[in-house]
Amino acid sequence: MNSTITIINILLPVLYVCTFGIYAYDFWKGEKKFTNSKRVFLFITLLLHVVYLLSRTVSFNHPPITNVFEIFTILAFSISFSYFILELVTDIRGTGPFIIIISIIFQIISSLFIKESPVVKDILRSNLLGLHVFGALIGYSGITVSAVYGFLYLTLYKDIKLNKFGLIFNRLPNLEVLETLSYYSAVIGFILLTFAIIIGIIWLPRAFPKYSFADPKLIGTFSVWILYGIGILSKTFGKWRGKKVVLFSIAGFVIAILSTMFTNFLSSSFHSFY
């Protein structure tokens, strides 16, 4: 089993790079040579990644959440998986390179440094925590994808305004589509973050009976959640649109990353497991 895990661990970055290469080739050349095959390639990569995550869970008898590099491989998977679902739903296939490259970065770091922790805290063997982490990571992937589409929206917006009709203008979908993709990704991310928070609220009193509501992790997470909630409600029911919404999404993403880094690595929180 361990040798299978080692082989897949080496294969995964290679497959992500190949998938990225095919998507990037189609984007660069503007051809539709690999329209269907690139999707199949991404599917195979994701399938192998699922096998890898399940193998680790079964082989080491805990969900792969016991160190940062296990978290990174889940992040790599969930970002590409979010994109895959979005591509299936919208049938917009030209933006893959901008998303898959993030998965490549996380997966390469993970594959290089991942190893089984000699001692795994009992708390990290909890399946409820596993569910919470998966929900949170897919949620964060959603807001990452939303921020990428937001960034692409701003780039195309600027290019059109400045009469720059280059690769971005020719290959990207139109502004309204980019705005919609950014919005839907944020909604999916928000729903999964909500799910993760609910699981966390159920699990927290069992694991840490003396937890405090003033914990930086709780404050940070709720702030990000409220921020996205306001953005989504304003877009859905209010008059927010276009640049304002995508800027909000990018700002939300930056705050979410900073908050995660601060609460997990710098501050003292019950949430610091590694």
Binding site: L156, I160, F169, P173, N174, L175, E176, V177, T180
Partner: peptide, 9 residues
């Protein structure tokens, strides 16, 4: 063509 790069429908 430019209009179609701004509006989806």
């Amino acid at each position: 063509q430019l209009v179609e790069k701004i509006f989806s429908s």
